[in-house]
């Protein structure tokens, strides 16, 4: 539950601060060949993989 709340806060705040989300930067921004969107996509793909592979197992203590 706490994990879901923390993740929601991060996604909401991050999407506003970063001016976009997976659809906005990923699908629309890349389609417009926007350098800002390419940078954002590379960053959130990296931190997303990091969170899923490292942070999540750490926080959940092995139980998924």
């Amino acid at each position: 539950m706490a994990l879901v709340v923390a993740a929601g806060l991060l996604v909401g705040y991050g999407a506003r601060a970063g001016n976009g989300c997976t659809s906005g930067h990923g699908v629309c921004g890349l389609g417009r060949r926007s350098p800002r969107s390419l940078a954002a996509v590379l960053v959130f793909m990296t931190t997303g993989a990091l969170a899923a592979q490292v942070l999540r197992p750490l926080l959940l203590g092995g139980a998924s």
Binding site: A7, A17, T22, A39
Partner: peptide, 22 residues
């Protein structure tokens, strides 16, 4: 910086539970 920090935070939240806004 704001774009990169925002995208980084967004990615962390996305990867923690597997959900993004849409």
């Amino acid at each position: 910086r704001k774009l990169l920090v925002g995208a980084a935070l967004f990615g962390l939240g996305w990867g923690l539970v597997g959900l993004c806004p849409g």
